[in-house]
Write a protein that binds this DNA or RNA. Structure first.
Lengths: 226, 226
DNA sequence: TAGATTGTTAATCGATTAACAATC
DNA sequence: TAGATTGTTAATCGATTAACAATC
């Protein structure tokens, strides 16, 4: 049996713990209690302790948590104690922006290839990486070990390219295309849907503005009606 | 009183409904039942009906939902029946990628300004929009109505710039910086933390790989111990 | 030791799913 | 009308918070 599955909600919070602990580490803080961390992060201390205890007891009664140790342990849980080889499929603006983002390299995500279908881009290099044509993908994947493929292309091409990637052994896709990929369930897909994020923003703007308008009076508006 | 608050979980799902309905509309489908939609979207029909009924009864018993009508209603709920003026603060790779992304314009998000602190970028234009210096921001915000500011700069500058934006009346921030902005609570913040998304991916990769290894035998591993 | 704070169990809260009466 | 499918209530499930005994 595998370890008991950890809920998605917990996993989502781990990178944020990791970030805060990293900042504490940088500012020289040695230990921290769930209560102090709770104050800083604006989550309950109870949640912090529950979350961490999914993975083991990292703290010590009466003391709290050692920042350096906890940071490192969460890093391991997140799989940041190794390197990953990543390719970017779709070398448009977003793909190039990702390729240029040096912070990923620092965390161990090495970009080793850039691909596109547009012949105009062929041979252009981004941070020393030449843009290759999509048809070279199968060959490239045979010759290089690649753990992650970022998909940064229009949804029309995304599904097709995803299939090519999977056929050639890719097991993890970071999907920026505005579509849901239907892939074998042993392939991990992490979606970043920017337009959906923006729509959540516009929802909140509209809601605010409606709330500011005088509420229409329907006469009978008692929700807990007798 | 405002309308009863809708849970964040529901709001997060709305853009996805909107996308599927848009695709159905394009392919000429006129009506759809919660069951059919459930099949396509891989969520329960019950959840679809519950979600929609937070906003009113859009369907008809025995018939289902009219695709065009439902699409349009969800669009209105998401605030997509109007335009927004947006600026991008941080004209690096990511900022420029966002500025170049024409799809946003189609949805009514008009980018009317680009700002950066780096003098090297001054005057460079992206899709006809000149990059301005950050110190011009207050003046620009006085002279233009801007609803949304995208923050695409390093966290070191992000907090400071966010304060400037808020002082000058910005009420909605689309935050790509790897930090949590602490702003007055009437300011809406929508975070896109790419590195945290990537860490969720690496977590899943590591977990898979561990699961594939032979489980260490601890002798006593019955979780429901007697 | 006394005080602090974790790890963990129990209680609460909220979200999802199931079921079915209402109704087109 | 009979059949289909919603809207909505009730049941279940899961996640968060509270509480406290264990222990450093």
């Amino acid at each position: 049996m595998e370890d008991k599955a950890i809920s998605r909600a917990v996993i989502k919070r781990l990178p944020r713990y990791y970030r805060y602990l990293g900042e504490l580490l940088e500012s020289g803080v040695e230990r921290i209690s769930s209560n102090e961390l709770s104050d800083r992060m604006q989550v309950t201390a109870s949640q912090i302790r529950q979350d961490l205890n999914n993975f083991g007891g990292f703290g010590q009664q009466g003391y709290g948590y050692n920042v350096k140790y906890l940071h490192s342990e969460i890093g391991k849980i997140l799989g940041l104690d190794r390197t990953y080889h990543m390719i970017i499929v779709g070398a448009g603006n977003l793909g190039q922006a990702l390729a240029n983002y040096v912070q990923f390299e620092k965390r161990g995500f090495l970009i080793i290839g850039l691909f596109d279908v547009n012949p105009v881009l062929k041979g252009i290099t981004v941070r020393g990486i030449p843009i290759r044509m999509a048809e070279e993908l199968p060959d490239f994947l045979q010759k290089n070990s690649v753990e992650i493929a970022a998909l940064t292309l229009p949804k029309a091409n995304a599904k097709e390219m995803a299939d090519v990637l999977v056929e050639n052994g890719i097991k993890a896709i970071w999907n920026f295309a505005h579509t849901d990929l239907r892939l074998p369930k042993d392939v991990i897909v992490e979606n970043v849907h920017l337009s959906e994020s923006l729509m959540q923003l516009s929802y909140n703007i509209s809601r605010r503005e409606q709330a500011r308008e005088p509420a229409p009076d329907y006469g009978d508006n008692d929700e807990n009606s007798a």
